[in-house]
Design a protein around this nucleic acid. Sequence first.
RNA 1: GCCCCUGUGGCGGAAUGGCAGACGCGGCAGACUCAAAAUCUGUUGCCCGCAAGGGCGUGGGAGUUCAAGUCUCCCCGGGGGCACCA
Length: 852
Amino acid sequence: MTSRYNFQESETRWQAVWEQRQVFAAREDPSRPKYYVLEMFPYPSGRIHMGHVRNYTLGDVVARYKRARGYNVLHPMGWDAFGLPAENAARDSKIHPAKWTYDNIATMRGELKRMGLSLDWSRELATCHPGYYKHQQKLFLDFLKAGLVDRREAFVNWDPVDHTVLANEQVIDGKGWRSGAPVEKRKLAQWFLKITAFSDELLRALGQLDRWPDKVRTMQEHWIGRSEGAYVTWKVAGRDTAIEVFTTRPDTLFGASFLALSPHHPFTDELARKDAKLAAFVAECDRAGTSEAAIEAAEKIGYDTGLEVEHPLAPGRTVPLWVANFVLMEYGAGAIFGCPSGDQRDLDFARKYGLDVIPVVMPRDADAKTFRIGDTAYTDDGVLINSAFLDGLEVPSAKRKVIERLEALRGGRGTVQYRLRDWLVSRQRYWGCPIPVVHCDACGVVPVPDRDLPVLLPDDVSFEKPGNPLDHHPTWKHVDCPRCGKKARRETDTFDTFVDSSWYFARYCSPRADEPVTRGAADYWLPVDQYVGGVEHAILHLLYSRFFTRAMRITGHAKVDEPFAGLFTQGMVCHESYRAADGRWLYPEEIDRQADGGVVEKGTGEPVTVGRREVMSKSKKNVVAPSAIIDAYGADTARWFMLSDSPPERDLEWSAAGIDGAWRFINRVWRLIDENADRREGAGGAAGDGAAIDLRRATHGAIRDVTQHLERFKFNSAVARIRELSNAIEAFTAGGAAARAAWREAVEALVKLLGPMMPHLGEELWQVLGGKGLLCEQAWPEADPALLVADSVEIAVQVNGKLRATVTVPRDAAQADVENVALAQPAVQRATEGRRPRKVIYRANQVINVVA
RNA sequence: GCCCCUGUGGCGGAAUGGCAGACGCGGCAGACUCAAAAUCUGUUGCCCGCAAGGGCGUGGGAGUUCAAGUCUCCCCGGGGGCACCA
């Protein structure tokens, strides 16, 4: 009769014990080293999905492991609770966003608790709670005082039907995702956080984030996009106006054949007022969306203003002034000079509109007299031609020289540009944190005084009308000016939800404090030692948090610069998709596998097309609900499977077979200990010999390797190593006192090693073994160095690099002895055909290579 | 187009330049069973061979090395990021 592990009973019981004894509640303790483990908090969409299970399992293994290593661990959880889906639910189902959100949180909290995570639930927070966003408003006002906030006009995606601003992702093919109306570029007053004030610092500090994936650092580096170049000033001929342009190729200045202004350049505005055709051209440019994709799709078009501008270094030379749709107002100076010979885009533009093409850089071995530009611009390094005092110079020295000359003549200056733009945080939405300012006709923009925080969202809102419900509210926005007392209006914009998630990690340090963070707590816990989450947040969330941390330092709320000292980005959870003949997607539980490997629809028996494995998504129904898996197999099985099959940074394929394998292993370990009651009474580590000493070596080898694998996030290898130890214990049949002691030592180690991964099974077995206290409070096992080296070693014997035999010799045997044994091997004799070796290379205790 | 990552049995994957395929999934054979499930044992990279043994093998091609999955160069496939950024 084989016994079975009763996971339902066990998991429920241990979760209650942990909660009752408050074992995961964190307290500041300066006498102990701290370790802050954090997983990206979830959006309360309704149910947890497998991506969450993977994310939180990884973090929990780290938290439990570090706790066992003696660290004072902080491991909190909360909810990224503001956002559009709640408003959509309100509109579609008439459920208030707050109710929808809090109901979802209650459901998901229950699901997370069933996973057995070692979380300090007493620190739980939700960003939609006034107790959280009050402090966000305070931070914003402090940033405002410190000059880190700006309100200015910006072009945004405006949906003329829904009367709202859309995020770039909500503009599809130039049309609003919901209304389908062509999106317009509109200039509106918007709130910005001045992240560009830290462009250089955010870029340079990436070098110190040595526990971040290179990939993420590179992505941020590109996103910030530092480029060196120069501003060059061009006088408009016959007018008292000058145009400044930015270029990274000042060396090509003599190849300029036109200047192009952005459609939104102030000088374009000025000209368009008197030029109806230009105004029409600008309007045409604005009809396209502002998203990168929309710009990319758009054809390059230009408009000749008829004006000429004077070349700053070639007296008497002028080039035509154009307005072009591809010139961005937000980057550089909002104007460029076009050098068609050195830039493909400029070349295409010049060919289209019949502008000059003057070669100014050519390959070193080319001839200046015959060098011509065809359909391809020359963008490589080389020497300057047709460029007056620059002729003959290489590109880098030409750049230096031309900048020197421009600066001397006051016609320009060298500069550094960043691609990074200020962070637009205004959203015309209800379910977000209100921006705490008041607009007064007399006083202008007035910050809400601290004593009046939080600015609460009104409960009684309607989602009937399109647009911002806060703006439609009959009374909410009408207030008296805090400064002069006259009638004034509240700001009705709310914050981008990325603001909420930019400082939650700091709030966890003192989640109920009546200030954003308590310095004592923040100084102790920050930075987060290990952050775990999806790579999809590589840029926005992580960059915003890095900015926020610096802004909080400047406003006195924190002392650290970087929020996350270590970052791990996990892969996604994938599954095959299934499709019926009529095109319907089918859930995995709606199909049957037949003996011949065919797949049919349950019930009908109709054949099903099996799609490739891809990220689980509701639209393709290739999802498996975590709750169903936990019901059927328990949390430990789900956790173990999440860790066992794939390295955590790669995508993981969910499979029923994999879950079965995990479930089988749990029961194997259970039986291993449950069915060996007679062996459990082992004494302390007696020396033993033979089989017993071999088992002890296996135990201590496993301790060393699992420890190393966990340190390096190689959880799948740690799993494999634990399985090996378990196999070794199963195979161990020796009797006697020493054998019992070795067995006892081995199973204790096994339980401790698997504890962070399968905490419920671990506690249960710890109890069966008669261990003191809770497993989650036990110290991590230490490997005994004396048991990590064997007396004899197996040496690979190669002839000319090919394996021919293996020999077992005493550890650290003399090379001559090993050589003799190796050469005597029949296989070696055959391979060398009796010849004397020309050379023998010996790597101690590992390999010997005979070169014949 | 540019940048980064990646390619290993039927599958997921392992391997500080030193015995490729650990560990698992799946398969095959067997034990237990009236039978099945569960469990257990053995076996399982490919090819030749009754066997002993031999040959071939980490996307393809070259190179460095006593020794290459690992390092270098070229090519091919897969994934991701950026993409009018002047």
